[in-house]
Write a protein that binds this DNA or RNA. Structure first.
Lengths: 197, 197
DNA sequence: CGAATATGTCAACATGGCTGACATAAATGT
DNA sequence: ACATTTATGTCAGCCATGTTGACATATTCG
């Protein structure tokens, strides 16, 4: 990022004391909830979120380059891994994209042997999606990278895992929270079932 | 998102007790740092981050539609607002995009009167960028939306603002942290200077 | 004065969204 | 049994936003 400053007064501070220069306030009216809804913009949080997310998806991005895959492929692979035998319609519902968009990346993931399709047993119109062993390996590799990042962040920031979960959960639109929770716990169960076989 | 389940056993739980069903573990080896680097993937955190960010940028997205602007415009507007009189080269450095990409959105922001350019005083090759009053208003509106989300999330999750800052900070690549910190504090100062005039 | 720098611009291309239209097979309802 | 609905796929084209490469202009600097 170099330095945005025009002036030469660039001070190398410490090598990264966690949260070092980011003190908890850029002025006055902040913590109190008694202001009339006109609180100061939280630029630090906004920008930290921006950069945190950039790096969070950056790890996988680098790995995916090896296969000429992009983020779209990552999302598909991830959710198919998490929901073995998922129907196309349900995957679309999670990703909130059109089937035409999905088709493009899905095609490549299937051609390169990361995902496979099988006909539904009960409803033969359905094409149930699941990862192959190769797909599982890649999905796991990517998840591990992101997990490591979370582990480091939690340890270094002195928060608990639980707090991180609750904070991120509370960042989600209230209307979606239930759906997200249900989706996560359900996937956990489905995945556990897959393992124990 | 409807429901991914094929089976009909969909249980409406509570209306959203914060973190309700998201207990702190999907099995065994988790909290301890004593495992050999092969900890279980933190799918809950990964997916929560995904949805949290989606909604975090969703708020601005909706507002920006009014002007036929996208996220690219938002980023440019935001960072120009935060760094009055920024040079084009420095803006490119923050955004990490090419000047051709920047040119497109910048052109529209200037045409519609959200950003203005002026020739550098010391170096007349430079075109210093700054928001207009109209641009300031929009940037503030968007920042407020995101600030509200953070405020709610912090309050509802029972974390402190400081913990949120430290957590997000620790999610950033160590090599970038210093740069980000410097950028944020510097922008805070520059913005404060603008105000006090 | 010549080289380096700051910026802009033209052209072409990639990725990953989108809409609309239409095809096919299987399930479902009357 | 047949008509309708559902699940999925596919063709064609558009849009937003990123990329590379090449080149033009003005200004500063050694």
């Amino acid at each position: 990022m170099a330095d945005i400053n025009v002036s030469p007064a660039r001070g190398r501070s410490g090598t990264g004391a966690p949260g070092s220069a980011l003190g908890s306030g850029q002025g006055a009216a902040q913590g109190g909830a008694a202001d009339g809804g006109a609180r100061d913009p939280a630029y630090d949080l906004i920008e930290l979120m921006f950069f945190a997310y950039r790096d969070f998806v950056g790890d996988p991005d680098h790995v995916l380059e090896r296969y000429q895959f992009g983020r779209a492929h990552h999302r598909v692979l991830h959710f198919v891994y998490r929901h073995p035998e998922i129907r196309v319609a349900d995957l679309l519902d999670i990703l909130k994209i059109t089937k035409q968009s999905l088709a493009r990346v899905l095609k490549e993931l299937i051609e390169q042997g990361f995902i496979q399709q099988k006909e539904g047993q009960v409803d033969r119109r359905q094409r149930l999606l699941a990862v192959t062993e190769k797909g599982r390996a890649l999905a796991l590799e990517l998840a591990r990278l992101q997990t490591e990042r979370f582990a480091r962040a939690i340890a270094q920031s002195g928060t608990t895992r639980d707090q991180a979960v609750r904070f991120l959960y509370a960042m989600i639109d209230p209307e979606s929270r239930e759906d997200v929770t249900r989706m996560i716990t359900q996937a956990d169960r489905a995945l556990a079932r897959t393992k124990e076989r």
